[in-house]
């Protein structure tokens, strides 16, 4: 997952795209260390544990759980990984370009 996400973020750095990690490893200090060690550049929500506020509210029961939202905030894909995630994102980015024309 991480290698793919690193290259994804790099590939789309100039695009209207954001990857947000909702992390359940611990407090901010612990997560910061992980981010540094793992060369993770994207923003994190600090949840403290798997029972943190966001995963609890969203009923997240399996890790990782993935949601892909379009530019209007609509949930368009769930739990897509690797190549399927790339395709999902590319489709949504293409939609945005199409809508502007």
């Amino acid at each position: 997952m991480l290698p793919h996400e690193r290259s994804l973020v790099k590939r789309l750095q100039s695009q209207p795209f954001a990857l947000i990690g909702i992390n359940s490893d611990g407090d901010a200090d612990k997560v910061k260390k992980i981010l540094k060690d793992q060369d993770i550049t994207w923003r994190q929500s600090i949840e403290g544990s798997t029972r943190g506020p966001w995963p609890t509210k969203w009923n997240v029961k399996s890790w990782p759980t993935i949601y892909v939202l379009d530019a209007q905030g609509v949930i368009r894909y769930k739990n897509v990984r690797e190549k399927a995630m790339d395709e999902a994102i590319d489709t949504l980015l293409a939609e945005m370009k199409g809508a502007k024309k």
Partner: peptide
């Protein structure tokens, strides 16, 4: 929510972008 730098942010701040939310952890 609050990010790793203690900064508050909202999911809706990201309108206008394609967003991937990844609930994850290394444990």
């Amino acid at each position: 929510t609050i990010d790793e730098n203690g900064v508050k942010f909202k999911l809706s701040d990201y309108r206008g972008k394609v967003v991937v939310l990844d609930f994850w952890g290394m444990w």
